Amino acid sequence: MTESKSAESGASSRFASTLIDLLDQVRYRRIDPAEQFDPVYRLRYEAYRREDFIPVNSQQVTRDEFDDLPNCYCYGVYVSGQLASSLRFHVVTPQHPYSPCMSVWPDVLAPILERGQSFIDPGRFTADFDLSLAYPALPYLTLRLAAMACEYFPVRYCMSAVRPEHTAFYKRIFGASPLGEQRSYANLAFPMQLYTADVPVIRDRVAERYPFFMSRPQEREALFGAEKADLNAIAPTARMAQRLEMMDRAG
């Protein structure tokens, strides 16, 4: 290994260890769609209003028709008990072919469903401004939900509607590639680019380089299980998952 690659690997390892330590302060909470004024919807509103992406509304919440779909999953991410960020995703299958990305790029995505394949469509990633400054790694902690969803649900792809200035992040971390041209997305006042990651291709590489994305089946079941949604705050299991992985490799 060259000196530069060794330094890069060391930096990546230190970063991963720091993130796993930070996960000890993190909890994930699934949102009950019946709670129309959940703090997550207020967080969305504040984040979009801060950049003047949406108009003012008297309720000071941001919800849309996609929040009420049966294939919708929405979460708040808490750091040291404070709501820091949120993420919503849809599990898009031939049986449930509805999601924000499907509404914007139907000509691009419908052929995937026609082949019998499915995908995760994560979006509405919003963050508390002050906490995003305090925790620069918040995007990783939040998108860990999408990584776990790709492990839990039998999907082939993870689709992301990405702001042009954020595409480099998705390329670097998830090996994502552009799939559709820039288009207007929902009611947001900026264009989005459709990016895709092939889950079976990237899964092992992402987990090895960024082990904080790893999880145990118990955590995924508590977050995504369909029998009875667990609306309590769920603790991450990345540290245990990494430890068990290392033990398996050691034989």
Rank of each mutant, 00 (worst) to 15 (best):
F174C: 10
L143Q: 14
N187M: 00
R239G: 06
C150V: 09
F213M: 14
Y170I: 12
N232I: 02
V104M: 08
G175F: 00
A161T: 13
I120E: 07
A207L: 06
Q117C: 09
Q117D: 12
L231D: 00
P211V: 02
R220I: 01
P100I: 00
E208V: 07
V155L: 03
Y210F: 15
E181C: 11
R239K: 06
G180Y: 00
T196L: 05
C150N: 15
L143W: 15
D204T: 12
C150T: 15
V108A: 15
A110C: 11
L131D: 03
R115N: 11
R220G: 00
Y170D: 09
P111S: 05
F213P: 11
Y140F: 12
E227W: 07
V201S: 12
E114I: 09
F190D: 10
C101R: 02
A233Y: 04
M159F: 06
F119I: 14
E208C: 08
P164C: 05
P122H: 07
A207F: 03
S118W: 01
L188H: 07
G116A: 08
Y195F: 06
K171F: 03
R203S: 12
F125D: 04
K171S: 13
M148K: 12
N232F: 00
F169A: 12
S160H: 02
T142Y: 10
A168L: 02
R205M: 10
G225Y: 02
Q193W: 00
A161P: 09
L194M: 11
I173T: 13
A226G: 15
M159T: 13
G225E: 00
P139N: 04
A226Y: 15
F224Q: 00
P200F: 03
L194C: 11
A229R: 08
P178H: 05
Q182Y: 04
F213Y: 14
I120Q: 07
R144L: 10
P106N: 13
P136R: 05
Y135C: 15
S103H: 01
Y210G: 12
F190I: 09
P111C: 02
A168R: 03
E221K: 05
A238L: 13
L179H: 14
V155K: 09
R203G: 10
T126N: 05
P211G: 05
L145D: 03
A149E: 09
R156G: 09
L138N: 04
G123M: 10
A207W: 04
Q218K: 04
F169G: 11
V104D: 06
F119G: 14
A147Y: 08
L145H: 02
F212W: 09
F190A: 14
R156F: 03
R156P: 08
M159N: 10
Y195C: 10
R163A: 07
F190P: 04
R124E: 05
Y185D: 01
S177V: 13
A168Y: 02
V201D: 08
Y210L: 15
Q218Y: 05
A233M: 00
V206K: 05
E151C: 13
Y210N: 15
F224P: 04
Y210K: 13
